[in-house]
Design a protein around this nucleic acid. Structure first.
Length: 513
RNA sequence: GCUCCGUUCGUAUAAUGGUUAGUACACUUGGCUUUCUACCGAGUAAUAAGGGUUCGAUUCCCUUACGGAGUACCA
């Protein structure tokens, strides 16, 4: 395959969502696999739905995931501009070219007229009427009106759109790379507007003009475009251009229930749908992001890559480089994939465990600031090392490891009641005293000290160690007790144990009373 | 409604015209262990239904059911 050029072409109408991330990823992987070019093109032809900040959000998201584009509005390139609004001037002549060739025609119906036309039809039982070869005769357009009338309306210049003209009864076949041959009959197609009254092209025109001019070789996009692909193919034919190859990706489905994953499903099911937090100024809603939830971008990429694609073997942890090597369009799954929250968490955990302590520490630093926690670099690194394998999301470091920064107010009393024996108090006091006298407060030294005390006094681990853990951590969950103690430090451990023992004794006395 | 697409354990998926239908997550359970993890081992669990074609179908064909997408001067 030579000269692979693919594009990711989002519309800046809101934040990039997980389905878009997957589409971008597959485009990226395909381009890199074939030594091709990955292009970011912003499709901002709809002025009404344009959302300020959305483009920046999309760019930032792609960056976070490492999906760097070779050509884009920011990076530039030989095929620019890469924003359709900046290409506005060139689309009209293509629309007019189609009219000259007889492959398109002017329309003068207003949106309201079309609206009522559809509603009337529906009311009389005719659902889903189309503007096509059968109905265009009853509408206002350059095919139904006399040339003089058309001319007049055209000169007036109000509500003029251009529609694609489609001859009935032609078989149009898409050779889709993932779905195989998909055939449509042209009689079933509607004659879509390709040029709007506001002077902007619609997606259909802009898309094929740009794909052609940017020499896009492979179009990899969402399934929602499959049914308009015959229109696109027709336009390539009308212009005399060679169409690119097409691959249509199935959609990502809600974790439970029906339908495609929507932006509100995140809040509903407790997981993010967007890369970063997003505040919708129209509805005053806040949507949570993968980053803020504590996902690592490489984990999300790995997870998403396997949502509708697989390399054909049993492996599933892949770096971007490996994905590039392994990716192929023919291993894309046709069926829609459900977003599995549990699996995404598992991936994140795997990636956290595998990540270098220093890198994790860097990610945690802003979170330390937020929480007003002040520790040394050395302390942070050791903390990370002890906690990393029991963390799924980044913030879990602070929920699960809170006791590394201060003794919890609440101690798990149940365990104290169960395990603490008043008659062991002298032993605990003795052990604290031994700790106080230790020259080197290292985990191995503490371990030897405690364990030999236990065996010398024939106490049993079960009666002592849980209490020591509870007394220093306030919880039964946590890393190796002796390593935890070493990190906490001699004085801190002694202080915590001393005051905890008072609490335990009190609990026990209350229980006995 | 119409057009198009899809359907293998709960989920993501593998494989095959003849197999004990594999793997991972989740779940249950055993081991390791001072706890929680991680790790290692075991277990539960699937070819949507009905017709064909065939010696034989989960695999090919048809129908049905269910799910999805499109049906805008939105992308």
């Amino acid at each position: 395959m030579t000269n692979v050029r693919v594009r990711f072409a989002p519309s800046p109408t809101g934040p990039l969502h997980i389905g878009g991330v997957r589409t971008a990823l597959y485009n990226y992987l395909f381009a890199k696999k074939h030594g091709g070019t990955f292009i970011l093109r912003i499709e901002d032809t709809d002025q009404k739905r344009y959302v300020p900040g959305a483009e920046e959000y999309i760019v930032k998201s792609l960056e976070w995931f490492g999906l760097t584009s070779d050509e884009s509005p920011l990076a530039g390139g030989d095929y620019g501009p890469y924003r359709q609004s900046e290409r506005k001037s060139m689309y009209k002549k293509y629309a007019e070219e189609l009219i000259e060739k007889g492959f398109a025609y002017y329309c003068f119906d207003t949106s309201d007229e079309l609206d009522t036309w559809r509603k009337e039809n529906e009311a009389s039982g005719n659902q889903g009427v189309k503007y096509n070869y059968l109905t265009r005769g009853e509408m206002k357009n350059s095919l139904s009106l006399s040339p003089e009338e058309s001319r007049k309306l055209l000169d007036k210049g109000e509500n003029v759109t251009i529609r694609l003209k489609i001859e009935p009864n032609r078989s149009i076949t898409i050779n889709d790379e993932v779905r195989g041959d998909v055939t449509f009959n042209s009689s079933d197609l509607d004659e879509k507007v390709i040029f709007k009254a506001d002077g902007m092209p619609t997606y259909h025109l802009a898309n094929i003009v740009d794909d052609h001019k940017m020499e896009i070789s492979h179009v990899i996009r969402g399934e929602e475009w499959l049914s308009s692909t015959p229109h696109h193919l027709l336009m390539y034919e009308y212009f005399g251009w060679t169409p690119p190859s097409f691959s249509h990706l199935s959609l990502i489905i809600k974790p439970v229930g029906k339908g495609k994953l929507g932006k509100r499903d995140g809040a509903k099911f407790g997981f993010p749908v967007f890369p970063f937090d997003w505040f919708d100024t129209k509805t005053n809603e806040t949507f949570i992001g993968f980053q803020e939830t504590g996902y690592l971008p490489e984990a999300v990429i790995n997870f998403v890559s396997l949502l509708g694609w697989n390399p054909g073997n049993d492996e599933e942890i892949f770096t971007m480089e490996e994905l590039i090597k392994l990716f192929s369009l023919d291993r894309i799954v046709k069926a829609g994939a459900r977003f599995d929250v549990d699996k995404s968490k598992w991936f994140n955990q795997q990636y956290i465990i595998a990540k270098a302590n220093t890198e994790l520490a860097d990610l945690l630093k802003p979170m330390l600031v937020e929480r007003n926690i002040d520790v040394t670099e050395d302390y942070l690194l050791k903390f990370v090392d002890l906690m990393k394998e029991r963390v799924e999301m980044l913030p879990d470091f602070f929920t699960g490891g809170a006791f590394f920064f201060s003794m919890p107010e609440e101690i798990e009393e149940k365990m104290a009641r169960k395990k603490y024996k008043l008659e062991n108090r002298p032993h605990f006091d003795a052990m604290i005293e031994m700790m106080r006298n230790m020259q080197q407060f290292t985990s191995s030294a503490i371990e030897t000290t405690i364990k030999s005390y236990i065996s010398e006094n024939e106490l049993g681990f079960g009666a002592i160690l849980p209490i020591l853990r509870l007394g220093t951590c306030g919880t039964m969950k946590g890393p190796d007790l002796f390593e935890t103690m070493e990190l906490l430090g001699q004085q801190e451990v002694i202080d915590r144990l001393s005051s905890s023992l008072e609490v335990f004794t009190e609990i026990k006395n209350r229980q006995n009373a």
